[in-house]
Amino acid sequence: MGDLLKVENLYAKGSGEEILKGVDLTIKVGEIQALLGPNGSGKSVLAQTIMGSPKYKAIKGEIFFKGKKITKMSPEKRVKLGISMSWQSPPAIKGIKLSNLLRKISVRKDFKVKEAEGFLEREVNLDLSGGERKISELLQIFSLDPQLIIFDEIDSGLDLKKIEIVSKIIKKEISRKKASILLITHSGTILNYFKPNVTNVMVEGKIICKSNNYKKTLNDIKKYGYEGCKKCKSSV
């Protein structure tokens, strides 16, 4: 498998503060990786920086996608290259119906999710339930037909049944395209659906652990906390 995404020694800051402090991350074609870490460790900032959010500035290091340097590329160009991200708390776009937004952004014009039919004619993310928002994110993301998808806590705020629905939609779509995913999460439930190839642990702006056994990583975190990860001998 070739490298799809390569993040090399990435430092990034937002609002004057250095948040990412030397992140290394490689995701291969078709690979499923998880990213765990305590609140405020920089997981969402890493996701936003990979997407090119103007809110965060890469001050050192590089990001490559399909071998192409994208560190300074605009977010929309990264999307065109095949990277997408679902937001943890997507903003409402008042006055714009979801169906209207989909018409503007979709690469796959025929892509549908039956769970979204009830709110296609409602305003984007406005007054949607937590579950509806996640489905809306999936609908938008897969309409873009991406090769790499970053799911920023797609499972947060969902009950077990909803996590199952969301996971099934994702699994079906990534197997169709052989897309790679980076799953940012706090919970083991969704990891049981995806069984990631690599599980990364991020603490204080740096990935300090990479493991091929997500269950062991989850158990270790449960037992020793993220503080234990810092002391662990198998840390990267």
Binding site: M51, E76, V79, P91, I105
Partner: peptide, 13 residues
């Protein structure tokens, strides 16, 4: 809103 703007740019606009 910068957040709305970034969100839509991350949808390819």
């Amino acid at each position: 809103s910068e957040e709305e703007l970034n969100y839509l740019r991350m949808r390819g606009l």
